[in-house]
Design a protein around this nucleic acid. Structure first.
Lengths: 349, 349
DNA sequence: ATGAAAGCGCTAACAG
DNA sequence: CTGTTAGCGCTTTCAT
C-alpha cells in the first residue's frame, strides 16, 4: 500500500488531492469529484473541500488529469506561415475562442512545407484533443489520416468528409468581377497563386464563371508565390501587354504587384485596376490603398475552433459523442472598395 | 499485481511499452530506456526493440512521460497582441528554434491585457517547462512570481534578476538621431507609445541623451496607443506646430502618422521627416516607405528560446542544473533608411 | 454520497 | 546491462 499520509513530501512541491483529502478528512476520490464533477458530491462537503483546497493553494494538475482521461485541454492549430498577415486575425479569433472554453492553443508554423506540417502533426497529435488545419498544404488523404486520430477541422478548404470552414470565395469573386464590370472593364486577368492552394483553384474557377456570365473575358497568368516577391514577378510578366484589370490571388501578391507596376511606370488605377483577396493588415496603407475581397478573418478562426470544440463535446467538459452532421461553414466575404480600382479610361486591350 | 500480459486491451488503442516489451521478451523498463536514453542499453537489444516497436507502430506517449518527469516538451510564449506584425517574425524565430530542439510552442495572445496575461500564465504554467514573456505588460514583481515557478525569459525588457533578450534600443536611437542630424535637423519630437511599455521609456531616454550630445533639441508628445489610430491622433496634435522631424515609438504609430499627416496636407518627408521603430511588415510598402530602426525580430525570438532551452538544460534532454550566469542578450538594431526622411528645407521651427 | 483500489503509460531507483 | 518495483496525480468503477 502506498503511504500517502506523509505531507507533501518535499515541502515545496504543490499539494495534491491527497493532501487536500487528508486536511479535510475525506477520501482523495471525493476531492477529485469535488473538482471534476461538482454535483456528484454533497454540496456542503464540496464547499468545504474547495475552501481548504484554496487555502492550501491546491491546483489540479492538468497532466495528471490528462493521463487517464486524455483530456489535455489543448488544441493544435497548424498554419502555413506565421509571417503571413493573413493568419494574424485568424489566430486571434482561434485563441480567443479556445481560451474562453478553457482550452489552450498549440500553434505550429510549418513555413509552407508539407514535410514540416506532417512532422508538426506527429509531434502534436498525441498531446492534443483536436486539430485545426489552417490552409494545409497536405493532400486530402494525409489530412484524413490525421483526422482519424483526432477531431479535425480544416480552414479554407473544403473536404467532403471533414468539417470545414471557409470563406465564400465564389461570392466574393462574383462581387469583385461585378465591381470591375461596373467600372467598364471587359477583360480581367487573374494572377494566380500556388497550384497547391485550394483557394487558388476555387477563385480562378469562380472568376471564369463570373466573367462568362457577365460577358467578359478571363485570362490567367502564374502561378506565383503568394508573396510580395511573387507580385513583383507578376508585374514584370504583365508589363508586356498590360490588361485594364487584374484580380490577384491574394493581397500580398496584389501589394507586390502594386509596387512592381509602379516601378515599371504603369499607374494604378489609371492604367490598370487591381483587386486583391483577404483584406490583410496593410491593405489599407499601401499605395494606392487596395480594393480587396475581405475575408472574415477573425470569424474564420473563431468558427473553426467552435466547430472543433463542438466535436469535442462542449467546453472542456465531458465528451458527448453527439458529433452532429458534418459541419461545413461558408462565411461571407465582402468587397472593400478602396483606391486601386477605377473606371477604365481607354478601350480594353 | 497488474496483469500486463493481455494484449492492448482494446484492439484499436495504441501499443505501450508493455506491448513492445512482451513482443521482444524484455522488461518494460528496458523498452523505456531504449527510447529515453539510448546507450544505457545493449546496442543490439536496443536495435531489436526499435525494430519491433516500429512494426507495432509504437510511439512514446508524451503525457505519460511528462507525468513522472515533468518534461512536457512544451514551452509557453505569451505575446501582447498576435495581431501586431511586430510579433510575426518573433514568433517564427521562436517556433523554429523550439521545434528544432523538440519542443512545441504554446502561444497565448493576451490582447494587451494584464488580466489576460495573468490568466494565461496560470493556465499554462502547470503544463510547460519554461516561459518566454514577449513584451509583458505585467509588473516586475508579477513576472518574478511566474519566474519562480518556471524558468522564464523576458523579451524586450530588462530585469536584473531574470534572463532577458532585447534590442539595443539606445544604439538604434542613437543612429536615428545621428541620421536626422546629418540631414540638418536641429530639433526632434518623440511621439510616445504607452507609458507601461519598457521600450517606450528607454527609447525616449535614449533620444534625449543623443539629442543632447549632438546639440539638438528634444520634445515629446503622447502617450499614444501604439497603433495606426494612435498615429492618426498624433498627427492631429502635431499639425498645430509641425516639427521638422519626429521619431515615433514604433512603426505602427509611424504609419498612422504618415497617413494622418498626409491627410492634413503635411508632406513627408518634405515638410517633416519621420522615423519609426522595429521595421515591421508593411514598413516597406507604406507611402512614403518608412525609415526605421530595424529590430532583429526573428533573432529576438530565436535567442529568447535558446536562452530558455539553455536554462532547461539542453535540447529536450536531461536537466543539467548548470544554469549559468544570468543571461542578458542585447541584440543590435540597425537603421534602415528609406523615403520618410529628408534634408530639412527650411529653418527649423 | 463517499471510500477503496486499480490503473493511465512511463520513469527511476535499486538490485542483481 | 536488464529486471523489479514503486510511484507521478488524477479518475473511475465497484462497493458500501
Amino acid at each position: 500500500m502506498v503511504d500517502r499520509s506523509r505531507a507533501k513530501k518535499t515541502e515545496n512541491s504543490r499539494p495534491t488531492i491527497y493532501d487536500v483529502a487528508a486536511a479535510c478528512g475525506v477520501a482523495p476520490s471525493t476531492v477529485s469529484r469535488a473538482f471534476a464533477r461538482p454535483g456528484r458530491v454533497n454540496a456542503e462537503t464540496a464547499e468545504r473541500i474547495r475552501q481548504v483546497a484554496a487555502e492550501m493553494g491546491y491546483r489540479t494538475n492538468p497532466l495528471a488529469r490528462a493521463l487517464p482521461t486524455g483530456r489535455t485541454s489543448l488544441i493544435a492549430i497548424v498554419i502555413a506561415d506565421v509571417t503571413n498577415p493573413f493568419f494574424f486575425e485568424i489566430l486571434r479569433g482561434a485563441e480567443e475562442t479556445a481560451t474562453e472554453a478553457g482550452y489552450t492553443l498549440l500553434v505550429a508554423d510549418v513555413q509552407e512545407s508539407i514535410e514540416a506540417e506532417r512532422r508538426a502533426l506527429d509531434r502534436m497529435i498525441p498531446m492534443v484533443e483536436g486539430i485545426v488545419l489552417a490552409t494545409s498544404r497536405m493532400s486530402d488523404s494525409s489530412i484524413r489520416v490525421a483526422a482519424k486520430q483526432r477531431p479535425t477541422v480544416v480552414l479554407n478548404r473544403a473536404m467532403s468528409d471533414i468539417a470545414s470552414v471557409a470563406t465564400d470565395n465564389a461570392l466574393g469573386m462574383r462581387r469583385a468581377v461585378e465591381h470591375l464590370a461596373d467600372l467598364g472593364h471587359v477583360s480581367i486577368t487573374y494572377v494566380a497563386g500556388p497550384d497547391a492552394s485550394w483557394a487558388n483553384g476555387i477563385r480562378w474557377r469562380a472568376m471564369r464563371e463570373a466573367t462568362q456570365e457577365l460577358g467578359m473575358r478571363a485570362r490567367r497568368i502564374g502561378p506565383f508565390a503568394p508573396t510580395q516577391a511573387g507580385g513583383l514577378s507578376a508585374a514584370g510578366e504583365l508589363a508586356a501587354t498590360p490588361p485594364t484589370a487584374v484580380i490577384a490571388y491574394n493581397d500580398l501578391l496584389a501589394i507586390g504587384l502594386l509596387r512592381g507596376l509602379s516601378s515599371l511606370g504603369i499607374r494604378v488605377p489609371q492604367d490598370v485596376s487591381v483587386v486583391g483577396f483577404d483584406n490583410i493588415f496593410g491593405a489599407d496603407f499601401c499605395t494606392p490603398q487596395l480594393t480587396t475581397v475581405a475575408a472574415p478573418l477573425r470569424q474564420l478562426g473563431k468558427v473553426a475552433v467552435q466547430t472543433l470544440l463542438n466535436d469535442l463535446g462542449g467546453p472542456a467538459s465531458g465528451r458527448a459523442v453527439s458529433r452532429g452532421p458534418l459541419k461545413t461553414a461558408l462565411l461571407p466575404a465582402r468587397l472593400v472598395i478602396r483606391e486601386s480600382t477605377a473606371r477604365v479610361e481607354a478601350l480594353a486591350e
